[in-house]
Nucleic acid binder design. Sequence first.
RNA 1: GCGGGUGUAGCUCAGUUGGUUAGAGCAUCUGGUUGUGGUCCAGAGGGUCGCGGGUUCGAGUCCCGUCACUCGCCCCA
Length: 414
Amino acid sequence: MTNLQPVRGTHDLLFDDLRRHRLIEATAFDLAARYGFVEIATPIFEFTDVFARTLGDTSDIVTKEMYTFETKGGESITLRPEGTAGVARAFISGGLAQMTPLKLFYRGPMFRHERPQKGRQRQFQQIGVELLGVASPQGDVEVIALAEHILKDLRLTGVTTLEINSLGDTESRAAYRDALVQFLGARKTALSEESRERLARNPLRILDSKDPGDQAAVKDAPAFTDFLNMASQDFFKTVQDGLAALGIGFKVNPALVRGLDYYCHTAFEFTTEALGAQGTVLAGGRYDGLIQQMGGPPTPGVGWAAGVERLAMLLPELTPAHRPIAVIPISDDEVTAAQSLTHTLRRAGLAADLGYGGNMGKRMKRADKINAIVAVILGADEVREHAVTVRNLDTGDQVKVPEADLVRHLAAYR
RNA sequence: GCGGGUGUAGCUCAGUUGGUUAGAGCAUCUGGUUGUGGUCCAGAGGGUCGCGGGUUCGAGUCCCGUCACUCGCCCCA
């Protein structure tokens, strides 16, 4: 081992950072269950093709951000850069088409080899849902409603905004793409170098470029909404009406384009101003062609994923952790009795802490440091009387309690 | 992958035009206090000054390289 630094873009989680993660995951899991979603855990690696084929050959994720390696058997394996492709693969290989509509929730680490910065790491946690086998816009509304519900319970609706757009069906999308390429092709000189590249590869992305020149050029470009065919327009309108009916606020953003190839119809993002360049906190959309494209039965799908680290950075102050009871033997003579007492309290469902050494003063200090709510003190007198001294560490009030009454007495401190 | 900024104690940071034993606050530990914590007082431990090379009588300080972090671009959760 030549150095002890963590691998670039990876982080250890503990204490409040990890509590934030767990709170987010638990909130999302519980609410997803309320909406009828069950958890799926897919492997964190797949054959490289699973991602290469589904995400699109032009996406940056595939072209430069995948952690890919070869096994001893010569197979190409990739650490999952996102969740949907793996779930889609599981849907197909597990024969889950029998069970549609299928509502799946997942959580776990994702891996992308890109330059780390605020809100962006090489290993990061995502939570997400996929609703498979539902073609109706009712599905889009449901998954967005779940997303909003999670953010609301996490008290994040104040710092996030929901933006939605429609990418239309395949036909609408192709027509728009042609029109956009034609329009921007004629103004090539006004575009940034990167956008000139994108014109051939991924022209829709020019719409949300941050380059001022690009933004000016795009200003008078044809609007996506004008190219939506009737079916796509109806679909989009139904989604908007559905959200409005649930009282979910949103903003239509015609420039909203998702990066991955498999999206169609609804695209949405919850964004924030609070995270610098990484404004997207939860994003998703509809992917009706994906499963079939991967070789499965034609199956519509809609879902989203959220970055747990980004949500964690937005989270308000955590409520203090549960306060334990400190058991304090006055001398070494009472340590065994104290350990037994601690065990009894724990068996009774109370969080009890027994330090590992030191005189009474030190043990009291430790009790204070771990934010104990009460100290249960055990000395020679107490042992003789089959009692303990209970000290309220906030008020300093102290009372002697018979051992038999202790658990009942401590219930007041829970 | 590209551009900017920053690296000094566990944390937050001082450190003068290059000058001899590198400091502070917080945190930790010990003692004041062997039946009572927080507050207070006294003391202690803790540093390859990110790493490597160079300039110099002398480098935390200047130069080059490198690594890491960070902000932005690209892209994305």
